[in-house]
């Protein structure tokens, strides 16, 4: 399983956490690997409480991690550090994020109360779904 991940954000400790999380998730699941290979586009994650932002540039089987929010990011997720863990705890059912269990309801609650903000949610649902699937530890 070749993931071809390049981390250009080595000055950002959060980038290593996310990198490790993605590697751990994808390497444990052939299904997630297949999704990873199909994922194309730039997503960004902003974590204001730790003054950190990184961008993930997926290129269908390879990934470049960059510091900051890439101006061409199709999806920008903005939330606090503890909620990143909530996003990673979403269950996957039939290849899609599942919002009807405890973890899913929590994420929906965070979305509705603005504690998780996602730019590009409606314009790029496929990219967001794929990102959610490969970020999920479940």
């Amino acid at each position: 399983m070749e993931l071809n991940i390049t981390n250009h954000a080595t000055d950002v400790p959060f980038s290593f956490i996310l990198q490790e999380l993605l590697i751990g998730n994808i390497e444990k699941s052939e299904a997630k690997y297949e999704i990873y290979k199909k994922t194309r586009g730039i997503t960004a994650i902003e974590v204001p409480d730790i003054e950190t932002a990184i961008s993930l540039h997926f290129q269908g089987g390879s990934l470049t991690i960059e510091s900051g929010v890439n101006p061409y990011a199709a999806i920008i997720i903005s939330t606090s550090s503890d909620n990143i863990m909530a996003l990673s705890s979403l269950s996957i059912r039939l290849g899609l994020p599942h919002y009807f269990d405890e973890a899913g309801r929590r994420v929906l609650g965070l979305l509705f109360t603005g504690k998780i903000k996602i730019k590009g949610l409606l314009k790029h649902p496929l990219l967001l779904t794929r990102l959610t699937v490969i970020m999920s530890v479940m």
Binding site: P13, F14, M85, S89
Partner: peptide, 24 residues
């Protein structure tokens, strides 16, 4: 917060991070 400290690199974790997140 320990989670925040990990993300900031103030604490380091060696081990299966996905397991830790699953059991946060």
């Amino acid at each position: 917060d320990a989670t925040k400290a990990l993300m900031q690199g103030k604490l380091k974790l060696k081990g299966d991070l996905t397991y830790v997140v699953r059991n946060i």
